[in-house]
Amino acid sequence: MNINRRQALGLTAGAAVFAVAGLRTVPAVADVAETEAAIKAFTGGAVPEGPGKLTLEAPEIAENGNTVPISVSVDSAMSGDDMVESVMILAEDNPNPGVATFNFTPMSGAAAATTRMRLAKTQNVIALAKMADGTFYMDKKEVKVTIGGCGG
């Protein structure tokens, strides 16, 4: 049990340690104002109505922050007023909040997209949907970014 205990200490077994600011691999963090400015530029100042028809899917814990799968979808007929023009993704604690903007057309058939993104640390990922009728929806998910192994 002594050996076991020493090993456990050496390995910090079982401890789920999450990346925090200040580690060598974590670059500067965007100003909160930058995220707010990006949201305002997208909505033209309109206030998003909460998640509404928009769903952002992201893992609760990312195995590595360099490759985090995310999906967005908006429940929409994709015609007339019930049309999604675009969905913007932001990561509020990355060096720059911008991630991607998906632009849809009636030929998209559905307002859904999947990609893989980088997260510098544990933070909120934000999705904003712009509807043709001028409505905006916003969904948010916290993704925990882990640091792995001895190497970090």
Binding site: N66, T67, V68, S71, M78, A91, N94, N96, G98, V99, A100, T101, F102, N103, F104, T105, P106, M107, S108, G109, A110, A112, A113, T114, T115, R116, M117, R118, L119
Partner: peptide
């Protein structure tokens, strides 16, 4: 694009991972 008409596009920032992957739909 499909037969010259836009279907889907994406404006991309550096926060998209290496070897970019996009999945979307088309009617």
């Amino acid at each position: 694009d499909f037969n010259g008409q836009p279907v889907f596009s994406c404006d991309i920032d550096p926060a998209i991972s290496a070897n970019p992957y996009f999945e979307f739909n088309a009617k």
